[in-house]
Design a protein around this nucleic acid. Structure first.
Length: 949
RNA sequence: GCCCCCGUAGCCCAACGGCAGAGGCAAGCCGCUUAAAACGGUUCAAGUGCCGGUUCGAAUCCGGUCGGGGGCACCA
């Protein structure tokens, strides 16, 4: 055994900083911090306020993405971002800011439930055990979390408020005029007063109670609809669009998903589509994430155009109304409701044989085609982009020029987007071009392609041609002109379409938040009043929804809660006396709990409100003075993986905006700044039969890899049990100590970048801490080896350069380069003072303080050994003295034509002319110039001189 | 197919358009040691994936290309 992985032996000094001593120090300081509440961040008001003093104005709220407490425990990749946030938190805390940092658990969800199904263990027991295990793992890493603010989404005291927020959303409607959500009572009042007409024009009072309810319910932000949803028999539940992968499987579990018409709870996120897109501009988020959200919402501006077909009218959506003159046919989605009505009885004379699908008449062709399409899987449709379709036998009239154009059905047009019908402009849309080529349809260009364009469909900009009154206009002009023209004549209207669909909110599972909804004898839903919350999850005999063959689409959801009949049947007084009701047996999706947890961190034990207004304003309120006039507020820094770019972050923004509209929060966005951390990946090795071998036992020789003498193949990817390449933080703490592990993880590279794990490199971090320790403490006696000797000028320069550098790097989250500057300064101390009796205290103390964010335990220990009685959790963090940052002389490299040929040293206050003169006087330069006058001399102050000969 | 990110010593990574190296690992050598480990010192090592452009000057900016990673994908 070696590598510093073992404890002291008889030869090693008694006070060497090794893994055993590190462990001892770490446990001691973790205990100290816990007992002293070192990381408690005071609130302005409420149970977590400090009555003795007011809160500092300067605050920082930072947050890690909600962990799911998995049963398999953490590997070294998981804590990467937790360490980064902790370093940043500690750095800011030492600078005197009030720092809120904690971590709770997103603990509802499938794994605990599936485990329960297999073993009969209650999901709550599994969840609690997993949380304990998770806490044990992260606590040994010494994070400065405010322990008072921890909670799990499964706590009744938490999900009570999740249900409360659900009711706020349920009891609200979106006012398109005001562009905001308003309480449903205000809508009822508008109807009752007659300021808003009822759908069928009758007076409000003429409607029955049930009719009134139906009108109101149709406006709510939470509503039930009978619509095609994603039914996943393998999970026994429906899932949201966002949870379906491109190949038509479930995000969780990878089971087939089928479109099926079911009555389900939806949330009207589409009402917020514009604000969700527009407000991205107000956020300090990675462009990548913003782009993903924009694409997901998929706003496109265009027009609906009406094409007469006999007595019918086909409405198409297009983003290119300017190309209307080039529309040479229409295409309907095969499922389009107008298809039956327009399909002709017989083929027109001389119909193109390619158009008929070989059928005797249009009805047969349509029926055959629809059958063929319904048999295609999502995957088939995606992999096979050959254009197929059939002619309906009908012709539509192009309103702009009166031309009769054929109407097709084809599966490249989707029922779920726009109007389910398109005008095909093959000249300017590649899909239409492909179809037109396949079926021999006319192609008309209406935009002059760019010079030298030799492609097929031209999608670029250019002047309109073949377009009557539009000719000569550019694309934007033409769009505007044609939309006006259509609108004046009633042939169309400008519109905006979105890819975003409403959020399917119900799951037929057990381990989730129950809905605070009951049904009366008419089957009408009633929201519970807030004072009847929480609705607690009942115990059930069986946690599983009725399970099905994953491939059997002809099945129906049957939630586990339906089996809890004592719970489902309930007598309540909802204002008109005690009556019998049935509870809703759905549960909320796992995303519900993570939609608002940032707000609960602020005020976790508040029983009166989900968060107190003053606390919300303090921690996440808008701060235009700091962040600009357009600041939407939100958590100051949110770090997590990019995998949540759409789902979680979109839902959380949606909820937050509803809460803002209803006046419950002052901030408009949950997360002001977002950073995505990279992943720690790992090598895995496969043997001859393709099975994985334990990565830790593989050795390298000449670029080849061997396991037990046999050559193995290396792959790079995730860390995971099945790949047999897991390294855990527990092992690292045991072999090196938490501080070494923390330092190494930060040193590996920039936070945002993924990189491979290399256990063999960890020792570098340990050696650094050992050297540092040795510069402060005598390894033989354990006594501090510092002196009150004044540092030299040279020492002070090194020190203050380090301070300035570390401050800059830490405030930009560059902990890799920040750590390197600490090493650099420590190397300086080692070089100068390792041979001496002691190191000047004036150099050692700032170093210990600067080490504290990354390696807090050893820093506290050294700080105490240096004679301090106060913990350094609250600083101070050293300040650089400008005096020592400027050198007295500067060495300038002298380039001739960009190549370094000589160097001169001049006083740092020398002006450009002096530097220039010194450069030209250098004998090597004189030699090179050989009497010629240089054409140009560039002096970059403080950098270099370039002589252009 | 479209979009985004990344290619720098054997490896992980630094470098406001200005001397390619801050830091760590590995390798070599020296010291300490009976010896080894540990420790300390020291050395070696790439011209920045490739081609072209802009510039006095390019790892950095621009265009193209190759390789790796990620996202979207018949969304009209």
């Amino acid at each position: 055994m070696s590598d510093g992985a073992t404890g002291s032996t008889e030869q090693t000094p008694a006070y060497r900083y090794d893994a055993v001593m590190a462990g001892d120090i770490e446990r001691r300081w973790q205990k100290y911090w816990a007992e002293n509440g070192s990381f408690y961040a005071p609130n302005p008001v409420g149970p977590l306020a400090d009555p003795a003093r007011s809160v500092p104005e300067d605050k920082l709220f930072l947050q890690d993405m909600f962990p799911y407490p998995s049963g398999s425990g953490l590997h070294v990749g998981h804590p990467l971002s937790y360490i980064a946030t902790d370093v940043y938190a500690r750095y800011n805390r030492m600078n005197g800011r009030n720092v809120l940092h904690t971590m709770g658990f997103d603990a509802f969800g499938l794994p605990a439930e599936q485990y329960a199904v297999q073993t009969g263990t209650h999901p709550r027991s599994t969840t609690e055990a997993n949380i304990e295990r998770f806490l044990a793992q992260i606590r040994q890493l010494g994070f400065g979390h405010d322990e008072r603010r921890r909670f799990a989404t499964t706590d009744v005291s938490y999900y009570r408020w999740t249900q409360w927020i659900f009711l706020q959303i349920y009891n609200a409607w979106y006012d398109d005029q005001q562009q905001k959500a308003r309480p449903i009572d205000e809508l009822i009042a508008e109807y009752a007063q007659g300021t808003r007409p009822t759908p069928d024009g009758r007076g409000w009072a003429e409607l029955s109670t049930v009719e009134q309810r139906k009108v109101i319910d149709s406006h709510r932000l939470v509503y039930q609809s009978e619509a095609p949803v994603n039914w996943c028999p393998g999970l026994g539940t429906v899932v949201a669009n966002e949870e379906v992968t491109p190949d038509g499987r479930s995000d969780r579990g990878n089971f087939p998903v089928f479109r099926k018409n079911l009555r389900q709870w939806m949330m009207r996120i589409t009402a917020y589509a514009d604000r969700l897109v527009d407000d991205l501009d107000r956020l300090d988020w990675p462009d990548k994430v913003k782009t993903m959200q924009r694409n997901w919402i998929g706003r496109s501006v265009g027009a609906n155009v009406y094409f007469p077909v006999g007595e019918h009218r086909i409405e198409v959506f297009t983003t290119r109304p300017d190309t209307l003159f080039g529309a040479t046919y229409l295409v309907l989605a095969p499922e389009h409701p107008l298809v039956e009505q327009i399909t002709g009885a017989v083929w027109p004379a001389n119909v193109d044989a390619r158009w008929t699908g070989g059928a005797a008449d249009p009805a047969a062709a349509v029926a055959d085609y629809r059958r063929a399409v319904s048999l295609k899987s999502e995957l088939d449709r995606q992999e096979n982009k050959d254009k197929t379709g059939v002619f309906t036998g009908a012709y539509a009239t192009n309103p702009v020029n009166g031309k009769e154009i054929p109407v097709f059905i084809a599966d490249y047009v989707l029922m779920g987007y726009g109007t389910g019908a398109i005008m095909a402009v093959p000249g300017h849309d590649q899909r239409d071009w492909d179809f037109a080529e396949e079926f021999g349809l006319e192609i008309v260009r209406t935009v002059q392609p760019a010079e030298g364009f030799d492609g097929k469909a031209f999608t670029g900009a250019g002047p309109a041609i073949n377009s009557g009154f539009l000719d000569g206009m550019d694309v934007e002009e033409a769009k505007q002109a044609i939309v006006d023209w259509l609108a004046e004549r009633g042939f169309g209207v400008g519109t905006t379409e979105y890819k975003l669909r409403d959020w399917l909110f119900a799951r037929q599972r057990y381990w989730g938040e129950p809905f605070p909804i009951v049904y009366d004898e008419h089957g009408m839903p009633h929201p519970l009043p807030a004072d009847q919350l929480p609705v607690e999850l009942p115990d059930v005999p069986d946690y599983a929804p009725t399970s099905y063959d994953p491939d059997d689409a002809d099945t129906e959801p049957n939630p586990p809660l339906a089996k809890a009949t004592d719970w489902v049947e309930v007598e309540l007084d909802l204002g008109d006396g005690p009556k019998k009701y049935r509870r809703d047996t759905n549960v909320m999706p796992q995303w519900a709990g993570s939609c608002w947890y940032q707000l609960r961190y602020i005020d976790p034990s508040n029983d009166e409100a989900f968060v107190a207004a003053q606390n919300e304003q303090y921690w996440v309120g808008k701060r235009p003075a700091e962040h600009g006039a357009n600041d939407p507020g939100g958590v100051d820094l949110y770090i997590g993986g990019v995998e949540h770019a759409v789902l979680h972050l979109l839902y959380a923004r949606f909820w937050h905006k509803v809460l803002f509209d209803l006046g419950h929060v002052s901030s408009e966005e949950p997360y002001r700044r977002l950073v995505n951390q990279g992943y720690i990946q790992a090598y895995a090795y496969t043997g001859a039969r393709g099975s994985y071998v334990p990565a830790e036992d593989v050795s390298e020789q000449d670029g080849k890899f061997f396991y037990q003498g046999e050559q193995v193949r290396r792959e790079y990817g995730k860390m995971g049990k099945s790949l047999r390449n897991v390294v855990t933080p527990d092992e690292m703490c045991e072999q090196y100590g938490a501080d070494t592990f923390r330092f190494y993880e930060m040193a590996m590279g920039p936070l945002e970048v993924s990189r491979p794990w290399a256990t063999k490199d960890v020792v570098g971090a340990q050696r650094f801490l050992q050297r540092l320790w040795r510069n402060v403490v005598d390894e033989q006696t354990g006594e501090p080896r510092v002196s009150d000797v004044d540092p030299t000028e040279n020492d002070l320069r090194a020190l203050h350069k380090a301070i300035a550098g570390v401050r800059e790097e830490f405030s930009e989250l560059r902990f890799n380069t920040g750590g390197a500057k600490l090493i650099e300064f420590n190397n300086h101390l080692t070089k100068v003072y390792a041979g001496a009796d002691a190191t000047p205290r004036a150099l050692v103390e700032p170093l210990v303080l600067m080490l504290a964010p990354q390696c807090p335990h050893i820093a506290e220990e050294l700080w105490q050994r240096l004679g301090h009685t106060e913990s350094l959790v609250h600083g101070p963090f050293p300040e650089a003295d400008e005096r020592y940052l400027v050198d007295e002389t500067v060495e300038y490299p002298i380039q001739v034509n960009g190549k370094v040929r000589a160097r001169v040293t001049v006083p740092s206050e020398a002006g450009q002319d002096e530097v220039r003169a010194a450069a030209l006087a250098d004998e090597k330069i004189v030699e090179i110039l050989a009497g010629e006058q240089p054409r140009k001399v560039i002096v970059v102050p403080g950098r270099l001189v370039n002589v252009v000969a």
